[in-house]
Design a protein around this nucleic acid. Structure first.
Lengths: 245, 245
DNA sequence: CGGGCGGTTGAAGTGCATCAACTGATGTGG
DNA sequence: CCACATCAGTTGATGCACTTCAACCGCCCG
């Protein structure tokens, strides 16, 4: 049934072999797909938190609005990602979630995850691993924000998206869609949109990449990775030996 | 047996009621305590990752060393915290871990966690919740680093430690030990130790707090929280209704 | 055709870094 | 018990990466 596989099943197969019943269980989490459009909020900070969400199609992001009116983008979600894991231990949302563009999501209540825990040991582990991996992504973003120059920040974000797209798309190319405005890039990196503009112009002049509308073309991916001090291990590893159990 | 309870049991009771067998299972994770001293590394980046670690005594931190020789401190661990959850999905360490001061840790291999998953549904949930909560802490740190001024960063870190200490110590006071040098505070906040010094002097002049050796005294905790735009929900919530299942 | 949003470009300001000299505690060996 | 070395912290002068403010442009959409 490989043509009809949902994103999340393909994603989870990175970690371990799934039995048929595992796949059926996962499939049942995506029973009620819902179309959402660009700019739509899946939820806001402080909303009651009782469900997760899998992203089947489109790009999304979690964010926090600051007192001064600025916005910090925390995470960028791609198809196959599970949204809302962070709030499993909380009654209310710690951050809002919005769509970068049109897409499809599937909600399921926390309770369903507990059923999964009860019924499948493999899936329990995988969910735990996915949570770990999101933590690793956050960690990398933290290093990026705390320690790098604007050029490095932008280079790192773009290269990370390039790598993540390669994971989920069989034939990703050096030219890909990146549906973030310069304002949103700034919100993700703690920079102003003005400075994003200047930085991207710099990259173009240096022959590193070309940004046009919602598209990016990497002219020299390796140089970009070097510029960003990109160490991609946090994206690569799977469960490894444990998966055999 | 409340006097002999280990840190981790007390910590986990925040989330749900533990049965005797749950407690015995947890206790078995702390069977081999090991003394570690100030500055000792529990592991380094790229070491093979096959075990977790509970911190029974002392303060620890995870960090990443950058190419330019600077160091970013990612997380600060207090007694009762579980270290290394992030690398459950990885073969190698993504960050080093070091002790701020002398302490005691207990190692256990990933395999033991899987046994816990198999044997206790409650503990599975709690470990998942702990992982979520660490993610929430990381998120808050990210916002802090990306969006706030040096004054706010320092204020936020100190106030967060104040809150976390209150959680784990019955009688925490406004004056508490904070075993980080100004260099290390800088490493955690992406600032130079020089600027940390100036910022702390500023707080002293403003009557907010006094820093002396390894100690901090909060003269006006509320003002400090306001200065930091501290919103502490990410520390407070437990599992809530789910715990009843 | 007009209005608005996303992006570009320039000039001026600033928060923090950098460099460097100095102080005061702590520890060590003669 | 003092001379000396070391390390954490303080303070001042200078520099710069990024911000802020503002004007302007081009594209898309009603």
């Amino acid at each position: 049934m490989s043509e009809t596989d949902s994103c999340i099943i393909r994603h989870f197969r990175h970690y371990a072999n799934l039995t048929e019943s595992d796949e059926a269980l996962l499939d049942s989490l995506e029973r009620e797909p819902r179309e959402v459009e660009r700019g739509e909020a899946l939820w806001q900070t402080d909303d009651p938190a009782g469900r997760f969400c899998t992203l089947s199609k489109g790009w999304a992001y979690s964010f926090r609005d600051m007192e001064d009116g600025s916005r910090q983008i925390l995470e960028i979600y791609l198809p196959g990602d599970v949204i809302g894991l962070r709030e499993f231990a909380f009654q209310e949302r710690l951050a809002g979630v919005m769509m970068f563009d049109d897409g499809v999501v599937c909600d399921f209540p926390h309770r369903r995850l507990l059923e999964v825990f009860r019924e499948s040991f493999t899936l329990s582990m995988i969910f735990f691993a996915v949570s770990s991996q999101q933590q690793a992504l956050l960690t990398e973003r933290l290093v990026n924000l705390a320690r790098r120059s604007a050029r490095q920040k932008v280079a790192h974000l773009i290269y990370e998206m390039y790598m993540r797209l390669q994971r989920i798309m069989p034939h990703a190319t050096r030219r890909f869609r990146l549906p973030l405005s310069q304002q949103q890039l700034g919100d993700a990196l703690g920079l102003t949109s003005v400075h994003i503009s200047r930085t991207l112009s710099g990259f173009r002049e240096d022959g590193l990449l070309i940004r046009e509308r919602q598209w990016v073309e990497l002219l020299d991916p390796d140089a970009l990775a070097r510029e960003a001090e990109f160490a991609g291990r946090y994206l690569r590893d799977g469960l490894g030996p444990i998966a055999g159990e």
